[in-house]
Design a binder for these strands. Structure first.
Lengths: 214, 214, 214, 214
DNA sequence: AATGAATGAGTGTTCATTCAT
DNA sequence: AATGAATGAACACTCATTCAT
């Protein structure tokens, strides 16, 4: 028996990988330097190609950025939406899993830098802000809102306003992410141990949401 | 007795006011657009002078930014250091006053935007980061540390590690500021009422610091 | 008695002259190379300034081109409109004068190259085409149409359709201009003597327009 | 008797057709956008091949353009030269046929756009201008000159200077072509009916050339 | 023969900085 | 002190051309 073989010629395999290589390079560069300060030539160099090659795959800087967001953050949101749609167990468990997934797959990775970037530069690039708000903020929020609504409907959660509660859920995670990511290395801030924070936060919140059982 | 009078002719007073006008314009522009995206021409226009005039007072963009920080944040820290040095009463009172002063005079004003800016863009301008760390973060932190040490020495506070405790004091305030300032308008986050937050935070913390009185 | 003196400092006189110098350089360059092939750096060099200086006076390439057209062709049309509005004599005389002015001040000068350019590249730059059509073609045409209408109303001209007749008037002049201007030097075409052509053309046309006198 | 058959397999015929397909695509693109603005990628796409394939058949953009001219205009001139060389009848008939052929096979087809293009952009591409002048202008002119000379020698035409007369013959046709082709759609010029124009032009000219018959 | 990925020189545009007046 | 004209380095984006497959 053989290991599965890629029968394509080498350059074709290379071609298929290119967009991913470019997106990875772009992510790093955007996170390191911010949107405006990222030079496409540096992204290209980082991916080991020339400036022109970038334009074979992405129409311009803005589309490159959007592709980075889509390929990483939006994709993860999509998975989470799947998880939520097919999940059958208690809402508290689902909510906890979603929060932890968000933390582990986005906030705790370099992707967290994208959120920082949007906070910092969003004002200067309204179209990007719009895109990010539509594809990430709105979709992510409404996912949490739906889970809360489900829990309330099933009598698992107390009858809070699910929209407001969504914000209450989101806020500490973003805070923690800013804390973990953004603070300047020089800043000498204390390291909050993120995993513990998340554990405590989730446990506390779920307990607070729990409906009274007579 | 007379109120102190400015005996200078008007144009000279004007001249003396120039740097202040420029610094005010620069602050607004930096806060609105970030450091990199701020165009000196816009700062000049906002102050009602020409671009060249800016360079009569500030050697370059970086020095302008530093001057904004010095003239506002560093100055406030200086005052606070004075307050602390001459204060004679209980350490808890001093600590509460310092925290509240920090909140009210920096975090709750446009100056809070400078902190956001440093978090967001500091990495791209290492010299600015260094400056900000030395002049603001380090000095501010050490002020709190000194007050904590004083309180412990005087038996008012429990014998915590004053350096770590400093971070614990600072973190929530910065969090609140980020919350108040930075989050994208689109983000739809709930408004935390800052004054209440600060009151509760200060009360709780001081109570937690209080040494046991036998 | 003294010659009128310019009391401004030299650099200010320079500044006032700059736009004209740039427009002149741009006209030459556009006529020589066409719109797309004209490099702004070459325009700048030709005017003896740097590329950046161009942008102090004109927002971009397109605006530079429009300014060239306005400053030359549109201005001349404006004069002609004035002439026509204030003219009191026979319509035939006015019409002849307008045609000749058009020939002498536009077609026979480098400005004719602009028309050639629009014919050649207009398709590729729809916004420029629109502008040129509105500001030059439409205004110029309607001027001739008005004069024809005036002549007909006053019983000087036969009752032709003035709009169609306008085209008949315009066509030969544009033809002559293309002939004079555009033909490649190498092309070895015969030199039509333009002045004679215009004289004969105007004389013939006016005679053809003349109303029958009983 | 059989019609000549192409015995090659289909893919080979395809291969043979390639250059023609490319030339056709190039002609359309050049006429639509002009020489400089034509992107080889668009030509390739139009021909349904890849950009690289273009370079298998034509060394570069310039050679592609020359090939378009050769394959169309020069070829037609060649035919006309043949016609003229073998023609035995009256010179007036030959001359009329040549003029009409020129009109119908070049000026009235998209090929007319090539002439427009050379007029408009020739200056920017001296090598192309040289080529066009040698292969098209000179050869075409000298063909007419030879026919005129023949007619004069045979006593059919009046003894005009054949070189000058050649230009007189050429000018109106080029004019008509410019009129038909190049003028901006927006320009609202009246449509000259080309066939009538040519008929009248040829009839008039031949009559004018006719030698007096005693 | 055919592909299409890759290149890099070239151009329009921006903006911190300088300097003659 | 103040001006604002001038500069030029920097960057996003395009496209003719090359070449490994």
């Amino acid at each position: 028996m053989q290991a599965p073989q890629d029968t394509k010629p080498r350059w074709e395999r290379r071609k298929d990988a290119r967009p991913q290589e470019l997106l990875a390079a772009a992510l790093e560069q955007f996170v390191e330097r911010g949107y405006a300060a990222t030079r496409l030539e540096d992204v290209a160099k980082r991916a080991g190609v020339s400036k022109g090659t970038l334009y074979l795959y992405f129409a311009n800087k803005e589309e490159l950025f959007k592709a980075v967001v889509r390929d990483n953050i939006v994709a993860t949101i999509g998975e989470a939406e799947q998880d939520a749609a097919t999940f059958d167990g208690p809402s508290a468990e689902l909510l906890g899993a979603l929060l932890m997934k968000w933390w582990q797959e986005i906030c705790a990775t370099p992707l967290g830098g994208i959120t920082k970037l949007m906070l910092a530069e969003g004002n200067n690039f309204p179209e990007l802000a719009q895109f990010y708000n539509d594809e990430v903020v709105a979709r992510g929020s409404s996912l949490f809102t739906r889970v809360l609504t489900r829990g309330i409907a099933r009598g698992e959660f107390r009858p809070v306003d699910p929209v407001v509660m969504t914000q209450v859920l989101i806020a500490p995670v973003i805070m923690l992410m800013m804390w973990t990511h953004a603070f300047m290395p020089t800043c000498g801030m204390p390291q909050i141990p993120p995993q513990e924070f998340m554990d405590v936060f989730i446990a506390t919140t779920l307990r607070g949401l729990q409906a009274d059982t007579p």
